[in-house]
Amino acid sequence: MGETLNIFIKAAFIDNMILAYFLGMCSYLAVSKTVKTAVGLGLAVIFVLGITMPINWAINTYLLSDSALVDGINLSFLRLILFIAVIASMVQLVEMIIEKVSPALYNSLGIFLPLITVNCAILGGSLFMVSREYGFTESVSFGLGSGVGWFLAIVAIASIREKLRTADVPPALRGLGIAFIITGLMGIAFMSLAGLNPGDFN
């Protein structure tokens, strides 16, 4: 249990997908103009990450690893293609759910909902899971943890950018330039959390 909690906290705060690895920056920069849409997209990302991670774990363990399916055959060269197919179909599912439950949110997210498919944080999470050799419960907690971390980061920058609208920024730096610099400052602030040793929670 302690190990699982460690992975969750580490993924959400210390190894934050956006602020430590810069994964999922495209939608992070484009959808962070208002807090409301940022919350919606953040929740969708938590859901997709939490659900694709265990599915990809099962595919990787029972289909793709060495001699898993047929003795002596290693199918790991299919990994990227199968992972992205799982992610694309899960995103399609989320899109259908959001369209039914909240049409307003569906409209405000627009093109960025299908673009979760190409959100690097999702595929990156699955690839990190493989390279770090996580087990089933570990990969669930890693998926949820990275999702929560992504959610926190996008909500934080959206609130800052809402306040920035009244600030006097040099014209050439307005919009994207300043958003990058703020993200950098947030990354440095998040680094102080690295002092938080997850081992202490055992």
Partner: peptide
Amino acid sequence: VLPASSLFVIGIFIWIQRA
């Protein structure tokens, strides 16, 4: 060396380019 600095560098690139 920190990853965060790449954000500053690209922010400054954008600033220079647009200026």
